[in-house]
Amino acid sequence: MNSPILEILNLSAGVGDKQILKGIDLTIRPGEVHAIMGPNGSGKSTLAAVLAGRDGYTVQGGQVRYLGRDLLEFAPEERAREGLFLAFQYPVEIPGVNSTYFLKAACNELRKHKGQPELDAMEFLELVKDKMKLLHLPEDLLKRPVNEGFSGGEKKRNEIFQMAVLEPRLAVLDETDSGLDIDALKVVANGVNKLKHAQNAQLVITHYQRLLNYIVPDFVHVLRDGRIVKSGGKELALELEEKGYDWITRPEPAAL
């Protein structure tokens, strides 16, 4: 009855011949918040990129099932329309494309996909007003080109704002905490928490434990050298904070 949103089965992936992910297994069910932690170079961002369908990554083995279907078969936009959302580690500036226009286009693509009528400009503005307050975003950001001239904190809040508007089934937050001061971090975490409900799920990718003071995960996984080397509850994050990543035994080298 509680069938998984995401099932990653023995996933190997990398860039060209280089293997970065070396057999990942992970199951995420509705209502769950998972955190993936790991040192730099462990493969965290590669996992996010493969899930979102970024060009330049090759899947070398294994499977990813999303809502029971083979996620890797789908183009990035199809994944997004099916409710997969990636909050970018480095949100992209798009000069000349108005933020409202961009987000309305995205929103209407998703609505079309679900067979819902498209929103007109007025309806869309109604929708976004509340969500802007949630993220403490100044309204004039919507009048500016996408992310252009936004501060680091504004860009990250804008990612979560887009997430609030697009209401994904599965949100992948790729190092959303990086570059945020503590106040911005609280705002972002608060937004993410308010968007959580029983039918969706979140995968929070982070290097540091501090984000997990505000977004409390149900499960924490430690990624190291392309493998999940330890999984546990939220207390695992605290343990990592205390003891560092070296505390976890290095896995056996992959048999080549």
């Binding site: 990035p76 936009e77 997004a80 961009f102 987000l103 995205a106 693509e109 996909h113 697009l166």
Partner: peptide, 17 residues
């Protein structure tokens, strides 16, 4: 890619940019 990751198709994204 940013456009596509938000559900905007490749062709529409190119037009938009």
């Amino acid at each position: 890619f940013y456009c596509r990751a938000r559900g905007i198709g490749l062709e529409t994204a190119r037009h938009m940019l």
